[in-house]
Nucleic acid binder design. Structure first.
Length: 744
RNA sequence: GCUGCUGUAGCUCAGCUGGUAGAGCGCGUCCUUGGUAAGGACGAGGUCCUGGGUCCGAUUCCCAGCAGCAGCUCCA
């Protein structure tokens, strides 16, 4: 091991936790991570800036892929469990080491017992990979070889890579042969391609490490995944990192705070947006903009309440289908909630993790949680205990439910309970507006002459999103959709759908949103989550694609992305760090009209079933606002800016004149503020710049005597002195045309 | 929900492996009355996320919870 490189993992506070040599062992262990090659080089490169190497350079490599940003690389997911815990630097380095598989006798050993805490040292036993191959091994070419599938399976089994074996059995056995890559003695099943050898990587950085489900399936085990990026040289890497930093400055969560657009309070609840005056101003302008357009296009405004009876959502299917993503139902009888929970689980026939906590809580409150329940490992027995609990509850409530008692299995018991629950008055915070709008449609008989009926509302809905999904304004638990539901004859579907796509495009164009993609969400034929007849789906999907084609839009068809009731076209945009969000959406629905038994009278004087379109050009005001903040980097165009003009006085003496200018602008309907503090003008200008106010009007001696203002545009700077009236003309025009200039 | 990281003043963060905390910006008061991105002085402001535990002593170490961040899963 003499001249061999090693990683020095600097512990958080001191160095003496690790015996010298341990670091080499860690490198050694890293080598064994499937898909991760460790390369020794001459340089002082660091891993995440904190892992130093004595005589060489550590590099990670794996699949390289060219992207718009350069090269990206990521490791394969690890194949074996970890067994060591190391207290080192708090970030990446520790994570890598922590996750290294145990193949070579990786032993954690308690090093020292602090007053309370424990520190661990970990060390490896066994021969060193470097020890045998040395640096030369790392410079070896990465070679590809192929094996017949059966042989390949055997090789993976020999390497004790059980997930690879599983992968072959599940998905790869259809291929006659499989490819491997080898560097020295490291062998990995991989489709490739690979770089010729790891030395090709000039600079890399491990970006993040995170869990990922095996085969992206949340019921399967979770593995660790390393994300990194690699470039041919350090300069390109630095440039890339700088670009990322710049992008993060556009983050709507950062700008929203800085510019006082919105806030989120833990007390009010996570995922619930509090729109501050400036954010609310922008939203209000957007809403009026939409409302005006809707009126022009023949929509009728409606208002509906924020809650509805559970029965409504049972009929629509939303309550049973999205049960876990909703706030709990509200029953008048408190115990009905508990029975509802039991009914749900008896119906499912399993104890789901998500509801277990709630269930135990109810049981505990009812003094009905026996220790046996907690210890019971069998799901079937737990369900049986739940059933016994229901019996007691029914008795105590004096609920006579003969059907429940007669039932011999959980499914029938669940049905009996459901029947009772349906008689109980219960409400749900509305997760969707459509059921309410449907009942407006149903409130009067409809003739084909009335169609299409277009009902629009800024409808606020509530969904209990998983904690891990919440994200600023883009993923929240309460949001307002710029929603509308259209009811029409089959003949009208095509033109209505087309109009709506154009509608969305019109908004996006107005706001300068050009970087989006169109996604056609179709049914996944293999999935059971969809309702309705296959024939309806096929018809809907075919006509949808036809319309999109005829509009000349580029799009991708994505099976499995449909709503449960119908196919849809979504407009998807990226946020400042490249994550995709669905904004505008137009959805076809043949199912809800059936569920709610909607009708219209046709020309033949017979009842017919209308077809529905759900559409929301912005998606939700919250998400749209979030994306818009990032799109404009907080610098809204004049027509949207919460503060359009700021008066800046050169000194205190000109306050009175400043106020007359302010009044003139306000009378014309502009959003204007005056900064009359006795600070230096330069400081006040700087503040207005940072507040991203489009126009500053500097007033002092010169302006006062001329009845004018010195105009400073946020982007171009000083534009010279103008009479007030002339300035007003200018900005009136800019607002009317919804100009997007000066928004950088 | 899962994996990992983080949680200190209004904001951004520092606090050197345990002895009741600091900076910059912001805020307040006073001085300064100026010409296109930061004038100066003084001052106020903190349950160090919450709850347990270890210890003579915990912001610091341990456990649990909550919240935020990144990724995965989900997204009507």
């Amino acid at each position: 091991m003499t001249a061999l490189p090693f990683i020095d993992l600097t512990p958080r506070r001191e160095h003496q936790w690790f015996a010298e040599g341990i670091t080499g062992e860690i490198t050694d262990a890293l080598v064994q991570v499937p898909g991760l090659h460790v390369v020794a080089r001459d340089a002082e490169a660091v891993l995440e800036g904190r892992v130093y190497e004595a005589g060489g350079r550590v590099r990670l490599s794996a699949e390289l892929k060219r992207t718009a940003d350069g090269y990206k690389f990521w490791s394969q997911t690890f194949d074996r469990p970890m067994s060591g815990v190391i207290a080192v630097e708090q970030d990446i380095a520790a994570q890598i080491v922590k996750r290294v598989p145990s193949a070579r006798g990786w032993h954690p050993r308690k090093l020292r017992h602090q007053a309370s805490g424990e520190a661990y040292q970990a060390y490896l036993e066994g021969r060193s990979w470097f020890g045998r191959g040395g640096v030369e091994a790392l410079r070896k070419a990465i070679e590809r070889f192929e094996k017949a599938t059966a042989e390949a399976r055997g090789l993976c089994a020999d390497l004790k890579q059980k997930l690879k074996v599983e992968h072959i059995d599940d998905d790869l056995k259809q291929y006659p042969s499989l490819s491997f890559y080898r560097q020295g003695e490291f062998i990995d099943l991989c489709r490739g391609p690979h770089i010729p050898h790891a030395g090709k990587i000039g600079a890399f950085k491990v970006m993040t490490i995170a869990g990922a489900y095996w085969k992206n399936d949340s019921t399967r085990p979770q593995l660790q995944r390393l994300y990194g990026t690699a470039f041919f040289n350090q300069k390109d890497l630095d440039a890339y990192l700088t670009r990322i930093e710049e992008a993060k400055k556009r983050d709507h969560r950062v700008l929203g705070k800085q510019l006082k657009l919105f806030t989120i309070s833990q007390m009010v609840g996570s995922g619930l947006i509090l729109w501050m005056p400036k954010g609310a101003t922008v939203r209000g302008i957007l809403e009026s903009f939409i409302k005006d357009e809707l009126l022009k296009r023949g929509y009728s405004p409606v208002y509906t309440p924020h809650i509805g009876r559970l029965e409504l959502y049972r009929t629509s299917g939303h309550f049973p289908y999205y049960r876990d993503a909703q706030f709990p139902p509200m029953y008048h009888r408190p115990s009905a909630g508990t029975l509802d929970l039991c009914q749900y689980r008896l119906a499912m026939g399993e104890i789901d993790e998500k509801r277990e906590h709630d269930y135990q809580e109810y049981m505990r409150q009812a003094h009905m949680l026996p220790p046996e329940y907690l210890k019971e490992p069998s799901q079937a027995k737990k369900l049986e205990m739940m059933h016994q609990f229901v019996l007691i509850l029914l008795k105590e409530l004096h609920v006579n439910l003969p059907e429940y008692h007669r039932a011999t299995n959980h499914k029938d018991r669940a049905d009996a309970l459901l029947k009772w629950l349906m008689e109980q008055e219960g409400f749900l915070l509305k997760p969707m507006n459509c059921p309410h709008h449907i009942h407006i449609y149903k409130a009067e008989p409809r003739s084909y002459r009335d169609l299409p009926v277009r009902l629009a509302e800024f409808g606020t809905v509530y969904r209990y999103e998983q904690t891990g999904e919440l994200n600023g304004m883009t993923r929240v638990r309460g949001f307002t959709q710029d929603d509308a539901h259209l009811f029409m004859t089959p003949e009208q579907v095509e033109s209505e759908f087309r109009d709506n796509l154009e509608f969305v495009l019109f908004f996006f164009r107005t706001l300068g949103l050009t970087d989006y993609r169109v996604r056609l969400g179709f049914r996944d034929p293999a999935s059971t989550k969809y309702v309705g007849e296959a024939a309806d789906w096929d018809a809907a999907q075919t006509s949808l694609e036809k319309i999109v084609k005829s509009l000349g839009m580029s799009y991708t068809v994505e099976p499995g992305e449909a709503a449960f009731y119908g196919p849809k076209a979504d407009f998807v945009v990226k946020d400042c760090i490249g994550r995709e969000w669905q904004l505008g959406t137009v959805q076809l629905d043949y199912n809800l009209p059936k569920r709610f038994d909607l009708e219209y009278v046709g020309a033949d004087n017979k009842p017919h079933r209308p077809i529905m379109i759900h559409r929301a050009p912005f998606g939700s005001m919250e998400r749209f606002m979030g994306i818009l903040i990032e799109h404009f980097a907080g610098a809204f165009p004049l027509w949207l800016a919460p503060e359009q003009v700021r008066i800046v006085t050169v000194s205190d003496k000109f306050r009175a004149y400043g106020e007359t200018v302010e009044r003139q602008l306000r009378d014309k309907g502009f959003r204007v503020a005056g900064d009359y503090r006795p600070d230096k003008m330069g400081a006040k200008i700087r503040e207005a710049q940072l507040d991203k106010v489009p126009y500053m009007l500097i007033v002092g001696e010169k302006e006062q005597s001329a009845g004018a203002v010195a105009v400073r545009a946020r982007v171009e700077g000083d534009r010279g002195v103008k009479p007030v009236a002339e300035f007003i003309d200018c900005i009136e025009r800019e607002v009317q045309t919804r100009s997007l200039t000066a928004t950088i």
